[in-house]
Nucleic acid binder design. Sequence first.
DNA 1: TGTATTCTATGATAATAGTCAGTATTTTTT
DNA 2: AAAAAATACTGACTATTATCATAGAATACA
Lengths: 237, 237
Amino acid sequence: MSNQPRNTPCELCASRKYSLMSDLSHAQVCSISDHKNLISHRKGQILYYESTKPLGIFCINSGVVKVYKTASNGKEQIVHLGKEGDFLGYAALLGEENYTNSAMIVEDAKICFIPKEAFLNTLLGNTQFFKRVTKELSHELGVMEEKLTDATQKSIRERLAFVLIHLASSYGIEGGDSQKIDLILTREEIAGIVGTATESVIRLLSEFKKDGLIEFEGKKIIIKDKRGLARLSDFYA
Amino acid sequence: MSNQPRNTPCELCASRKYSLMSDLSHAQVCSISDHKNLISHRKGQILYYESTKPLGIFCINSGVVKVYKTASNGKEQIVHLGKEGDFLGYAALLGEENYTNSAMIVEDAKICFIPKEAFLNTLLGNTQFFKRVTKELSHELGVMEEKLTDATQKSIRERLAFVLIHLASSYGIEGGDSQKIDLILTREEIAGIVGTATESVIRLLSEFKKDGLIEFEGKKIIIKDKRGLARLSDFYA
DNA sequence: TGTATTCTATGATAATAGTCAGTATTTTTT
DNA sequence: AAAAAATACTGACTATTATCATAGAATACA
């Protein structure tokens, strides 16, 4: 909206090139841009709640968002960590159902809200964009099936090692032979990603540290031996 | 193909009304129908293998198909049981990647193969159909996230009870106060759905039987106490 | 029809991971 | 700066579930 000076238009947004919107024509980007609304969010704020009605989608300009389900025992299962360029909430919109998960800011974020109509109109008016979104959706389904298989067939140790490697590949900053995961997560949140109890994560992380696989730097984790973790994370590999 | 007398055209196919194709116009159904190919499959036959290239999609006319991933320990995680009217393999096609899972016939089946081009052309030529497919994909993603959450946060007993209830709702035939699951699965396959060891399923099923929740009739399972199972399957409910 | 193979079942044991309780440490709030 | 709250950690214990071994039953097959 032109009367909001802090609201960078999508066509100038640096994170667009990483996003589903990278395929859109200039006119289409502008059409979305004219309807979107940028909001800043602090850590802990909720973007949307499970079982509520989606009114649009969210596009992450900066920051990190956890997408999670709350199990019947009260624990959180984190199904996705969204970062710069990621779209959130489009599955509920396209599935024409209420949100099946919730989203909370993990690291201070700038997030654009694109109203349902603007998004759907652009989608239906641009087959290429529609295909791109559907491609992403299909890919996510495959990823989720993989996670399910890992959850039922691998040990917590293997899964934690795997999660660390993945966090490093998404949020890692190189430092010689080691890699720092540049994202602060509580032990409880890591447990939510792995799908285990907080205490198990704490114990395993200190085991990994004792074995020289990782180190701690403040609240951040440094991967010291990626190969060692990779070996731990799978039966072969 | 008109020279194959046994190949019922889609426009006359009884399972179409349950399928994603229920929205298509007559012309579009015929366009798909003209390119499809009906094949009979016996139990145990493979429809496609994980990591191979999809050449089209499968539409189940009759029978049951298990869609599964093979974990690194060799065990199967069944991610979906497909039945009459279900489309299989479209996620890989739309995700433009190789199959991320495999599909095997569980109960003798008649399955139509629709070549990639015919499917994609119809999809891109009919926004309504495209939307319908995307809706299904989005829904499946939500279902998979739910399964992941259950896998990490619920006990095997709870999950097995839940699986039995779901099998009953998909394959159940009513019989007074009880419901027969009209589908033969081995204990190993049930374990593959639940995500556990075969022995655990065997033990729990006989526990359920001892507790009057289920009974066996040949290789089929009869739900005697659905409420009891439902109570077992969740912390509340 | 006999044989091989697969499937179901059961017991014993071990490993894994969860829960509970209590304490230390860090962070946030007032 | 003190108090409160949240987070991290540790130990003890328990429950759950996997694994291994073995045997019987059912099914396929040749």
